[in-house]
Design a protein around this nucleic acid. Structure first.
Lengths: 196, 196
DNA sequence: TTTTTAAATGAGCGAACGCTCACTTATCTT
DNA sequence: AAGATAAGTGAGCGTTCGCTCATTTAAAAA
């Protein structure tokens, strides 16, 4: 039998992310995607049940890629400061090297697809981030806090920084540019907040 | 001449927010909106140039309402801690009393409408938040930092907390519930991070 | 009361939508 | 070489989309 053309599948995936990022989820359509990816509309339905399934699958897939990128070289047994810093660096690297994927993920995380895409990612992250936080508390490095407060203080600031960069945020004619120096400065505030 | 029915205009606005929040921007349509609001599709075009204009106008409007809510009782001359705490309380109150508006705002802020809606809001907030930060630096309450780092450390954690609440975030069968106690706990970390 | 003005309408246009089906193409097994 | 299987296609279906227009309705101006 004839075998699948992996280039075709990847092409569909990449064009979908590109189109949703640049034109928005509300302007995304199967006929347009088929034309952009150079395939027949019917081909898309070989790989995806329907439009909803396509968006959901690609969302989860991109989320998993982000998770894998963030956790690269990370170990829950690491020191609190060391482990958190690795996650920060990884997350920044992912966004900078994969702008479209990062914007796509952020747009869908704030859409009605959130519920469909978040569970798998949440489980994947929780598997390592949960023990990491627990270890840091048991070792007496940080106070005993709930995971949501931890995330809000330790991770949210980084996401915010990355977003300012991606948006090309402008304040008084000065465009914000992300840098390791800025990231380290922000990281130091976070460490100061959480370390006993 | 006949005068405009303000209830009709408000009805269109509210139904639009309701529909976009619950069904997503990608499933939002003028014909559906007209039916839901109990008006003719043609009526909508008396008030809005086209679909894009409707979404943009309602986005900016909701953003301005949020700004006004956040800055209620706030003064840039306030102490750093006092001023920041008021903004936190106001922002939390806005989200809790106006869940649909808050979700709507968040969804559009992460869509391709971001550029169209953000400028007016950014200006409105910057007018008071800029001097506030500057005062706090001049008084020696906090270090001299760029506005993006400030926002990421001082405000982003609150947005994150509110979002966990709105999403009904769940970790190990425990649903996260926002409370003043949790907010104060998080706020204290932020103050510890930023205060000299 | 009549005239004037703009709000408000419902039917419906052309275009675009998600999706399907009869069919062709490529590669496997025999 | 022939048969089997699944990948891949393009035309086009029924539906919904954004939007318009001829018309009606209500209230201000005369």
């Amino acid at each position: 039998m004839r075998q699948r053309d992996e280039n075709k599948i990847q092409g569909i995936r990449e064009k979908a992310i590109e189109m949703i990022t640049n034109e928005g989820l509300e302007n995304f359509g199967i006929n347009k995607l088929a034309k952009a990816a150079g395939v027949s509309p019917a081909t898309i339905y070989i790989y995806y049940k329907d439009k909803d399934d396509l968006i959901t699958q690609i969302s989860v897939d991109e989320g998993m890629r982000m998770c894998a990128a963030i956790l690269e070289g990370f170990d829950p047994e690491m020191t609190f400061e060391e482990g958190l810093w690795i996650q920060w660096k990884n997350r920044a690297k992912y966004s900078l090297n994969n702008q479209e994927g990062a914007s796509f993920y952020e747009q869908l995380r704030n859409s009605t697809y959130r519920e469909k895409m978040v569970k798998a990612i949440h489980d994947e992250m929780g598997k390592k981030a949960g023990p990491f936080m627990k270890n840091a508390i048991e070792r007496g490095e940080i106070n005993d806090i709930t995971i949501e407060v931890f995330w809000s203080v330790a991770i949210a600031p980084l996401y915010s920084l990355v977003r300012f960069h991606q948006e090309g945020h402008c304040f008084k004619d000065r465009i914000f540019v992300f840098s390791e120096k800025i990231m380290k400065e922000t990281f130091d505030y976070v460490i100061k907040a959480l370390k006993k």
